[in-house]
Design a binder for these strands. Structure first.
Lengths: 142, 142
DNA sequence: ATAGGGTCTGTAGCAGCTACAGGGTCAAGA
DNA sequence: TCTTGACCCTGTAGCTGCTACAGACCCTAT
């Protein structure tokens, strides 16, 4: 399987596959005489594992640990569960943060009555934190 | 006001203030004879506007537009409301995505019965997307 | 004189890709 | 046989929004 086929089989950009190889997440595949990467089924499965984990929001480093466990079926697997639980907690935290954000934003949005910026309530609310209910500490990435 | 005082007054790292100046979000302030930045109250207000907007999750580019409106009180301000509504929508989308994630993750987590990685349900679930309910298309950043 | 704080510029790093530039390879059609 | 076009290669730079240096300067107190 050449890289383009692997790309299609897994829905992963070619550049991303090469990137995963560069950072050691994917093992370097065999090469054809002309230097093309040549993948087999285990590569594809590994890449699917990676993509699925990424889709679930795991970081590269978490995936590295998970793959390491997957590579050593004899090891104790409680680490895997620990990583996943921790991750779930983070997702829940993020949801809470975003729900707070949504509240503040919905208080701000829709208050513009189509006038001029000078007395726009939206601008005003952004300028003055004291309109807010919560301290919303720290920028929340979307 | 020197940069350190502005930093404390707004809870913004010094490097971040200089960064905002470099990207044109904060205007270059006056300088003391020895080259130190010297800020006045309008700078502090502007920085508070920026920080507050960042805390609400607006991107730098969105904030640029909002500041632009704030700088021109005579302009029509419906843009401000549009930016904020759009942003609210994105926050809501993100919440939905994360809630899906949470569901999938909570299905995966806790299935490890403390055995070996070889028959760990967590690893298994990551390897095989077909366990999942939803397609969870595309990686979701936390 | 010196020690400590603060400040300056400029550059590099983080995550996780994505997007080139500038070249080589390969199969099919004229 | 030649050429076209699709594919592949390496290497590097860019994205967002900061953060963290290095190496220098300034200012005040002792």
């Amino acid at each position: 399987m050449k890289i383009g086929q692997l790309s299609k089989a897994t829905g992963t950009h070619i550049e991303t596959i090469r990137y995963y190889e560069r950072i050691g997440l994917m093992p370097p595949p065999a090469r054809t005489p002309s230097g093309y990467r040549s993948y087999a089924d285990p590569h594809r499965d590994r890449l699917r594992f990676i993509r699925h984990s990424r889709d679930l929001g795991f970081t590269i480093e978490e995936i590295r640990s998970l793959l390491d466990l997957s590579d050593h079926p004899d090891r104790d697997c409680s680490d895997a569960d620990r990583i996943a639980s921790l991750h779930l907690e983070q997702v829940e935290q993020k949801i809470t943060q975003l729900e707070n954000l949504r509240e503040e934003l919905s208080r701000i949005v829709g208050r513009c009555r189509g006038g001029m910026a000078g007395d726009c309530r939206v601008i005003e609310a952004l300028a003055d934190h004291s309109h807010c209910e919560h301290p919303h500490d720290g920028a929340v990435r979307l």
